[in-house]
Write a protein that binds this DNA or RNA. Structure first.
Lengths: 341, 341
DNA sequence: GGGCCATTCCAAAGCGCTTTGGCAAAGTGC
DNA sequence: GCACTTTGCCAAAGCGCTTTGGAATGGCCC
C-alpha cells in the first residue's frame, strides 16, 4: 500500500494524508485520527526512498568499520557499541548502515557514501594519529562525530573519548604504589590514537615513580586473547620479568591470566594485572570484587551518546563542536596486589 | 553533482549517461569511456534513493538483531558475522542495514522494513523453536535466509546451519570415551534452536554411553564469561561434581577455565573442558595444540556464505530453497584428557 | 447580506534516477 | 540507389513521497 492508494481509500488527497501522518497543523484532529488509524490498519509506512528523495534526507547513519590491512581482527567492542547507538537511532527514527572496508579503500568509501546521498551523517571509528579522514569528512561536508580523538588534527570536530591518558597514568601509579617497578604495557596498535595516549599515561606514571621504561616490557598489537597470552608468556620468560601487567582490553587480559596460569603464577599474589574494561556485555567484570582491577567505561553507553551527538549535529550543523571526555572508573579487583618481597 | 549536471557537462542526454554507466549496449564504447572518466573525475555516484525509487530496489540488506527482553547481552559473534557478510555485500554492491530491536517489537520491525521498502532482503538471526518469524517473513514476501534453523517450522526456507546436534553428540562421546561419566552441559538459552539441538546431541551421547543425565549438570543462559564461571563454580561444589564440561561458546569456556583455576583444578588433568568455537577473530583457539578441545565453525565464513545465499535468493526468488549444513571441525586441544582414577 | 478570517483540504511540481518508445545517421544487402 | 537493419543517441514518463500555492467551506462581525 502506498500513499496514493491510502488516500484514495480514505477519500482524501495525498497532501492531506501526508500532512496528517507527519503532524502538520493544517489537518483537523478528527481527520488525522482517521488517517492514522487507516495507515495502521493497512500497515502503511511511507517508502523510505521516496521520502528521502523528496526531503533530501536519508534518515540513515553510516558506520564505516575498517578492517585493517595490517590485521584481520574484528573489534570485539563493535557489537556493544552498535547496540548502544542502535537504540538511540531507533528512538529518533534513524536507520543504521554499516560498511566494512579495507583501510586502503576508506577514503573512496566515505566519498561514495556522500555522493550517493546514502547517509545523513556518520560515526568515525578508531581514529589514528593525525587522521586524514578528518579533513576528508570536513571537505565532504558530511556531519560526523568521532569515537575517540585524533591528536595532531588541525580541524575542529566533535568527539567522545575516554580520558585514556589519565586512566593509564593513574592505574600505573596504583601499581607502582603497590611496589611494582617492572610494569609491562600490553597496548593496542599504536597507530591508533587511544593507544598513543594510553602509552603516554603509562610512561608518565612510570617516570614519576622513578621506574625504568623498558622497551622489552612494552608491546602493541591487535587486542586478541592470543596476543595477551603470547606476549605475557614471552615477558614472563625474560631474565627480569614484569611483576605487573597493564593491559588495554579485557579480552587481552584474559590471555594474560591464562599465561599466568600456565606458569603457575597466581594473579594478585605473584603477578598483578590491571586492564581497561569496555564493559562488554558478554565479558563482564562486575563481580564483587571484580575479577580484574580495571579502568571501566561502557562502550555501549558511548555508542548511545555518540549517536545522540551525531543526530544533534545533523539537526544543527553549525552548532559549535562538542567535545566530551569521560573519565574511566577505576575499580580495584582481585587481580592486583602488593609486590612480593 | 547529479545526473543532470553530469550529462549537461558532457553534452549528452541523461539517458545516455545513465546507460553508459550501467553497462547497457546501446552506447558506443568511446562514449562510455568518456562518461565513465567524467563520472570519476567529478566523483559522481548515482543517488541511492533516486536509483532505488526508479528501480524499485534498495540494494540494501537488513539485519535485525533482537536484544532479548530476557537479557541484555549483545551476541559476541555479531561483529565477526557482520564482517563476513559485509565483505560479500560490498562485492555485490549491496549496503547493510542493522536494526536493533527488543523482542516484543520484532514483528512490527520486520513489517515496517518491508512496508518502507527499506531492504531487498534480510538475514534472520537466532531462530527459536518453531519460530513465528518464518511465517511472518513468508507472508511479507521479503526474501530472507536464516542463520541457523527452526525445528518444527512448517514452511520451507533457506538456511545455513552448523550440525550442532552431531557436533555435541560426538564431542560428548569423545568425553565419555575418555572415561568421563559426569559431563556437564553449559548450554545457550534453550528457547534458541541451536541450543535445543546441542542438548539433544549431548543427551544422546550420554545415553549411548550409559551415563546418567543429571539435571544438576545442565545449565542454560546467555553465553557470557560470567555465566561460565558461576555455573562451573556451583557445579564443582556439588557433592558429586562433573569431571568434564561441555560448553556452548568459547567465551563461556574461558569462564569455566577461570573457575577451575579458582578451585585449583588443572584443565585436562583434573577436569576436562570441550567447547564450541565460532572462530572469533579476537578469541582464537588456533595454537598448536589448541587451548580448548573444540568443535570449530567460523561464524565469519557463515556470514559471508549466508550473504551470498541471500543475494542469490533476491535475484531468483522462486528458486528452490537451499539448506546447507556445515559440520563443525573437531579438534583435540589441551583442555581434555582421560578421567582421573 | 457582504466582507474577512480561519479552517480544511487539494492539484501539481519536483526530488534524481531508470526506462520506454522513438528518431536520425550510418551501415548493409541486393 | 533503394529498402532495410543496426547503431547511437534523446525526450519524456514515472517511481512515491513532500511541499508550494491556491481554493472552497463555514463562521463571524458589522
Amino acid at each position: 500500500m502506498n500513499l496514493k492508494e491510502l488516500s484514495k481509500h480514505l477519500g482524501l488527497s495525498q497532501t492531506t494524508v501526508s500532512r496528517a501522518l507527519n503532524g502538520y497543523p493544517e489537518v483537523s484532529e478528527a481527520t488525522r485520527a482517521r488517517v492514522v488509524a487507516a495507515a495502521h490498519a493497512n500497515d502503511y509506512s511511507p517508502n523510505t526512498r521516496a521520502q528521502g528523495l523528496a526531503t533530501g534526507l536519508s534518515r540513515c547513519i553510516g558506520h564505516v568499520i575498517s578492517v585493517g590491512d595490517s590485521g584481520e581482527m574484528v573489534n570485539p567492542i563493535f557489537g556493544d557499541f552498535m547496540a548502544g547507538a542502535g537504540e538511540t537511532y531507533a528512538a529518533h527514527g534513524y536507520d543504521m548502515m554499516v560498511t566494512r572496508v579495507g583501510e586502503r579503500d576508506e577514503a573512496e568509501t566515505y566519498r561514495r557514501l556522500k555522493a550517493r546521498g546514502a547517509v545523513d551523517g556518520l560515526v568515525m571509528h578508531s581514529p589514528r594519529f593525525n587522521d586524514s579522514r578528518l579533513d576528508l569528512l570536513n571537505d565532504l561536508g558530511l556531519p560526523f562525530v568521532v569515537h575517540g580523538r585524533s591528536s595532531g588534527a588541525q580541524v575542529p570536530y566533535s568527539y567522545l573519548d575516554v580520558n585514556n591518558r589519565r586512566a593509564f597514568y593513574e592505574t600505573t601509579r596504583h601499581l607502582t604504589g603497590l611496589g611494582h617497578r617492572r610494569v609491562a604495557l600490553l597496548n593496542g596498535q599504536e597507530q591508533l590514537d587511544f593507544a598513543i595516549r594510553r602509552r603516554q599515561g603509562y610512561e608518565q606514571g612510570m617516570q614519576e615513580a622513578g621506574c625504568d621504561i623498558d622497551p622489552d616490557l612494552m608491546a602493541q598489537d591487535e587486542m586478541t586473547e592470543d596476543y595477551g597470552y603470547r606476549t605475557a608468556i614471552s615477558m614472563l620468560d625474560l631474565p627480569s620479568p614484569p611483576t605487573a601487567f597493564l593491559v588495554s582490553s579485557i579480552i587481552c587480559a584474559a590471555g594474560v591470566r591464562r599465561a599466568l596460569d600456565d606458569r603457575n603464577l597466581r594473579p594478585a599474589k605473584d603477578v598483578s594485572i590491571a586492564t581497561f574494561d569496555d564493559c562488554l556485555s558478554y565479558f563482564r567484570n562486575s563481580a564483587a570484587p571484580p575479577v580484574f582491577t580495571a579502568m571501566q567505561s561502557s562502550v555501549r553507553a558511548a555508542g548511545a551518546t555518540l549517536a545522540r551527538m551525531l543526530i544533534d549535529r545533523i539537526n544543527t550543523p553549525n552548532a559549535p563542536h562538542t567535545q566530551t571526555l569521560w573519565e574511566a572508573e577505576f575499580v580495584v579487583g582481585a587481580s592486583t596486589g602488593p609486590i612480593k618481597d
